[in-house]
Design a protein around this nucleic acid. Structure first.
Lengths: 341, 341
DNA sequence: AGTGGTCGCTAAACTGATTTAGCAGAGCAT
DNA sequence: ATGCTCTGCTAAATCAGTTTAGCGACCACT
């Protein structure tokens, strides 16, 4: 790769100047007393030779690599990872940086390995990303330099970027209240583990809190709350079926994520009920299926691209120590209507 | 990042030997005549100091960075990108390499920039990935070193890795024939653009070819073929509705991808038909929704993780020039049954 | 005694950049 | 003529490794 690239020495020689002069000119150093003509010659030579600096050599001296490590627990399993990475990639490019991506798969050995691999390559900083919003403790090895937590917080008070799940909970509840839903709102997706253990999830309790707070202020209580062991379609399906077996039918359903809502749709379809005429549904995440469902599903979007971007900005430009909350926009879609009757 | 790391000189000094000796011992060089005791001392010193080599310095001399560039057109839009990356990441780790990931967004300027950025960092090779299987021409700049095309082929005969879509077409058709479906098989997702322009898609024509070939051999013709401008749920929905409006109802549907099948499910549900009792459905891709649908959708899986892995293997271990075809496994699920009656 | 070979190790060159320290010449005042 | 500053530029050190060339001690053989 990149055999016979022109070096700085080649440029200097062609320009009839020293490496020093060439280096200074190409780096646009202020206060050097090199003549305008010298500048010309260096630029011309660099252009003619197609000179590009060898960043390995440069970084040996400057201890800057213009490279950021993106270390995450699991890249592939959730479709959101791509957006996180894309946002980071964009912001990095704008700042002339590049991303070294590694995955730990939640395995301590792999993590150790991944971190050594990136530190050996002298990265300028580390973005430590979790695929589910949660609290975690970062490995001591990366604390030697700048670190930003992405989609996670840590007890050490490191800079971090997380979605505003509580705000999303408020948006969701508010949307239903505004439509006139009152005492027949049911919730699908309560989960003790996710709610109580911040190392499993921060989203569950924040969303729940936002919903409760808004409903409380309106003096509205939830009609029913269904617990689910996981947030997958089958659990949403089961929960919805159990809700429909009860005497009072809900006018609206809040699902803790879109996959649950997808399952709920299936149960509603089987029961011959239509969304939103019979029941409104609203949810969290804005998974691509939300837009594909019939009717399209109203939800609050995880702003993953924004978050990836913010993480890079925080890392390179510095920033506040308290977690950066990125708002989750409400996507109003067809699954919402005023309560029937 | 990584301030005050021990250097090779530190290790050598502590071991009471020269840098040369330390370097040779740590690199496990054969044929050096250093004593067993010298080996001991170097290893001990390295261990005690927590020595890790500075790869920037090493690569300056060796012109190897143990880093691979993963350049793709679009990382985020398809959920499959993650699997491609994950497979590549795994294979790279096994070979002590790391991935530098960039995205071109299909924009020539970004592409130019991305390629310069990775070449400046002296990567050992480039994986050039497309998110939809297609033919493309690679930028001349990366031809100076090893290149592997991932999910793409090129006219230049570069090594490449693509899914075996034709084989998948055969699997799909065979699965239906084996169940007894004959002359009432309909196809959803014909698309002239995708079929005729290899720079748009290679999958469409290969899948179609595999299906046709298998049906022809069994002397079976397609009942109907629906054209779709895109392969999205809404198009599958519309196509399915039009099929149901015709006099003869199909016994089985082949959808060119899972999103079309998802739309077809919606139309079938609305029409009060059940899968697979009334109509079998089979498809391509193995999108996560395929397993979430009720009934779960039989489909042929895009082996993205395998492909990412193969690309790294081809790049580092070398390999044949003809495209590596990665098989697409058939996922037999609940949407298949013998024809009714 | 001289020659040659092996053993165990090291000095120094080299990679391609940045950066520090300083040199030669011009202009000017004394 | 001397000392001073300013201008325009360069030599050499430096970063942290790898690699080439070779040195001194010891032994064996003729």
């Amino acid at each position: 790769m990149g055999r016979n690239r022109a070096t700085l020495a080649d440029v200097a020689q062609r320009a009839g100047l020293s490496k020093t002069a060439a280096s200074m000119v190409l780096n646009g150093r202020e206060g050097t007393r090199l003549s305008a003509e010298a500048h010309q010659r260096v630029f011309a030579a660099a252009e003619e030779l197609g000179y590009r600096p060898n960043l390995a050599a440069r970084s040996l001296r400057t201890r800057k690599t213009a490279t950021i490590a993106f270390v995450s627990d699991i890249v592939a399993t959730t479709r959101f990872a791509g957006d996180l990475i894309r946002g980071a990639l964009d912001a990095a490019r704008e700042r002339d940086h590049v991303l070294l991506i590694t995955e730990t798969q939640g395995d301590a050995t792999f993590e150790q390995y991944a971190i050594e691999a990136v530190l050996d390559r002298q990265v300028d900083g580390v973005i430590y990303a979790a695929m589910a919003t949660r609290r975690l403790t970062v490995p001591a090895a990366i604390l030697g330099g700048p670190v930003v937590l992405l989609n996670a917080t840590s007890p050490d008070g490191l800079p971090s970027v997380v979605p505003d799940d509580e705000g999303a909970g408020r948006s969701v509840a508010t949307a239903l209240l505004e439509l006139g839903h009152r005492d027949a709102i049911a919730l699908i997706g309560r989960n003790r583990l996710k709610e109580d253990d911040p190392e499993v999830s921060l989203a569950a309790s924040a969303r729940l809190h936002g919903i409760r707070q808004t409903l409380d202020e309106a003096k509205v209580g939830l009609l029913a709350e269904c617990f689910c062991t996981e947030w997958l379609p089958e659990h949403g399906y089961a929960a919805m079926r159990s809700l429909l077996g009860k005497p009072k039918r809900p006018s609206a359903i809040i699902c803790m994520n879109d996959r649950l809502a997808f399952g709920a749709y299936q149960a509603l379809g089987e029961a011959g009920l239509t969304v939103p005429e019979d029941i409104s549904v609203i949810s969290f995440d804005d998974d691509p299926i939300a837009a594909w469902l019939r009717p399209s599903l109203a939800t609050t979007a995880l702003p993953h691209e924004q978050m990836g971007r913010r993480a890079v900005e925080l890392l390179l430009d510095g920033g506040a120590a308290e977690p950066a909350l990125v708002p989750m926009p409400l996507r109003r879609r067809r699954s919402l209507a005023p309560p029937a009757g």
